[in-house]
């Protein structure tokens, strides 16, 4: 049995759980069940859910913010200033949300079953030009920020622009955006640290949610042994992912900033509180209103997620 897996870009910290999963599954089934990972050959990243729905491949990764209308339920985890502080917490809350009936039903429209998250740390901003000292300096700054982070930046007067990660470098080089919100691994692998002049250490406006899903029919069609091998490997794959991210990636981050001479901007607590005040409440309210209109139990999802924070 061979499954095709559609990822994109190149192998990086963000894809290590899928690589690990492939290794574990093959090991446990004595090579009878293999995951054949393709980086970009099977689909465009924004169409991975379409491919799952069609049945063109059996497993795929995508980010909720690429297409809000395709997966509204899980965009709740992209709301700004939720207060998630570690990768472990992000993982725990994501896994719980993925079991919520509303999320299951949402993804079932694509014949998809949520398998595991790709927990990412809080985003922060790398930018060119003068470093902002206060929130007021964000006024009019064009920044690449998707989903809830974009909304948060908009709330303090910045101009958020969305583009996929692969287009970011050119946009920053050419002045289309002056700043980019990414997780550290992406700042390194998409080259923003090459031209960036400053980095915000504690803005922590939020993160994106990028699940790995499987085609439901294919999952149901697995023999019990193969399904157990797959589902039984998820936790170990995620442990490995988080260890890699907290280890190698974060270890490389500080020295990278030093080496490239990037100034580290730290905002005062009062500034952060003011930012949260301006961004968090309105964004959450808007999200709840929009998604209630769409027929989701939006308030319930929001309470479900926020109720788990810090627990």
């Amino acid at each position: 049995e061979e499954w095709n897996v559609s990822l994109w870009g190149k192998r990086r910290a963000f894809t290590e759980h899928v690589e690990k999963l492939a290794e574990l599954v093959s090991e446990k089934t004595g090579g009878e069940f293999t995951l054949n990972i393709s980086y970009g050959g099977l689909s465009k990243n924004r169409e991975n859910l379409d491919g799952i729905s069609i049945g063109a491949f059996e497993m795929a990764q995508f980010c909720a913010g690429y297409h809000r209308d395709k997966n509204p339920s899980i965009t709740v985890l992209e709301l700004p200033f939720l207060g998630v502080s570690t990768l472990e917490e992000e993982r725990k809350i994501s896994q719980a949300l993925y079991q919520h009936p509303a999320a299951i039903a949402d993804l079932a429209r694509w014949n998809a079953t949520l398998l595991m998250p790709s927990p990412l740390p809080q985003y922060n901003i790398v930018g060119v030009g003068d470093a902002p000292a206060t929130l007021a300096d964000f006024e009019g700054l064009s920044v690449r920020a998707t989903g809830g982070i974009g909304a948060a930046m908009g709330a303090v007067g910045a101009v958020p622009t969305s583009m996929s990660a692969t287009e970011v470098r050119q946009a920053l080089d050419s002045g289309v955006v002056k700043a980019v919100a990414f997780a550290p691994h992406a700042h390194m692998s998409f080259g923003t640290v090459e031209t960036g002049k400053w980095w915000t250490t504690n803005l922590n406006p939020g993160t994106v949610n990028c699940p790995v899903v499987v085609n439901t029919d294919a999952l149901n069609g697995l023999s019990d042994a193969h399904r157990d091998a797959l589902l039984g490997s998820v936790d170990e794959a995620l442990d490995y992912y988080i260890a890699t991210y907290n280890g190698a990636t974060m270890d490389a981050w500080g020295p990278t900033l030093e080496e490239k001479g990037i100034a580290q901007v730290t905002f005062a607590d009062t500034e952060i509180a003011a930012f949260k005040e301006a961004a968090a409440g309105p964004a959450a309210a808007a999200w709840i209103a929009d998604n209630t209109a769409r027929g989701l139990p939006a308030q319930e999802l929001y309470d479900f997620v926020t109720g788990m924070i810090g627990q």
Binding site: R46, D50, S53, I54, G65, Y66, H67, R68, D69, K70, R109, T146, G150, P160, T161, S162, M163, S164, D290, A293, R294, G295
Partner: peptide
């Protein structure tokens, strides 16, 4: 047509089940 149909939903606001990245155009 199937590609279109997957992005279209009579029940959804603006009939949209798939939206653009930045300003969420259907």
């Amino acid at each position: 047509w199937a590609h279109f149909a997957r992005s279209f939903d009579f029940a959804a606001p603006m009939w949209s089940r798939d939206s653009s990245m930045d300003i969420a155009l259907p």
